[in-house]
Design a binder for these strands. Sequence first.
DNA 1: CATGAAGATGAGAGGTTCCTCAAGTTCATA
DNA 2: TATGAACTTGAGGAACCTCTCATCTTCATG
Lengths: 219, 219
Amino acid sequence: MPSSTEASRPLRSDALRNRALLIDAARELFAERGVDVALEEVARRAGVSIGTLYNRFPTRAALIEAVFADRLEKIAGYALAALADPDPWHGFADYLVNVCELQAVDRGFNEVAARGLADSPANQGLRRQVGEAMNQLIERAKQAGAVRADLAMEDLAFVVWGIAQTVERTANSAPRLWRRHLALLLDGFRAEGAHPLPEPPLRPDQSHAAVPECDPPTK
Amino acid sequence: MPSSTEASRPLRSDALRNRALLIDAARELFAERGVDVALEEVARRAGVSIGTLYNRFPTRAALIEAVFADRLEKIAGYALAALADPDPWHGFADYLVNVCELQAVDRGFNEVAARGLADSPANQGLRRQVGEAMNQLIERAKQAGAVRADLAMEDLAFVVWGIAQTVERTANSAPRLWRRHLALLLDGFRAEGAHPLPEPPLRPDQSHAAVPECDPPTK
DNA sequence: CATGAAGATGAGAGGTTCCTCAAGTTCATA
DNA sequence: TATGAACTTGAGGAACCTCTCATCTTCATG
């Protein structure tokens, strides 16, 4: 059962193997050098021709999505584990640390997280599930008096965005520094000593608009 | 007195005029579309040939530096104004808001700030001056009990890096949202309710290393 | 206003990446 | 094992960008 979006006929065995080789090669290269590496190089490392790459993945986005398909599941797992934590604050904070760790460990995923993951219809379900868990996580921590009352779920984008940049700048020189950045942000999320915020949070529809990033076709 | 690095002979009048035209054109394009715009386009908007651009600015970095030369002075001004503020916390916070406003208003400067401004020897002096003012600003706010004792000057990079990403993502959809991000970070900087940090701050020599970013020539 | 040094010009060489497609190869099935 | 559909291949066209340099133009100076 290949995780294809459409219910197309199954791939031939050699095509399936090449698909796996390409994903492995892309996973490595993306992790090392980011998701903008030349696709020719991905094909070379996979040991197939560039034509085959385009046969399997008509666009770069399709390849990226295939490479990082498991990440959303991983995040969903973290969210559920966080909800199982008896300490609301600890669960909340741990969840964010875990997500950021995914960013810190893989340059490609860090970029994708910051720019906005391909929201394929296939992932729609998981996505909603994660959103719901995050919401519960925050609400529970608010009611426990741990998280400030004016924090919105959309504000967690600041964590991903901010840590993305810190990771990118310091991955070589100080690979653990992002933990300090996150800890400072977390202290800002606490109810204790919270000061009024100057702006409302991103509305859900806006947060969707913030994702695409890609410049419209130049005109 | 052209602000040239070397004590070269002064430029001829037409060359000086073209230099100004190029800087103006680049300032506009950088602000709109970032510092990676095609240099041909900068030349076109300036109304000169690409060759002239290369005559005046042998590298893109040279052009970027000329375009943003004034920004460091502006920041130095903010730092001094902040020190003049009788309220240590207010001075500290206001300084950061002002710097971030520079990022929010100019996509090119936002990129440059996040990637690390060209540290030309010419700016060395101003740079040190700003650093010193920032240090005083923090120390004063610490002694007033407003800023947490374990905050280091190097941690302010988190502000620039984090806000850079938020600005980039939301400049179109929610152009004021960065203020919320900054406010949350600022609450994390307060002495009130500070929790121990998991990592030491970036050492000064490391913060220099975090700047360059540019991949080494690929070999 | 003549002269030469400084400057401007833009076609084009050279590099990179994306993406296609006509031709050849392999797999699955009868 | 023969056949056709599925798949692979890689040369090369197209789009972009950077940077150079031989040639022409303009400015400053006596």
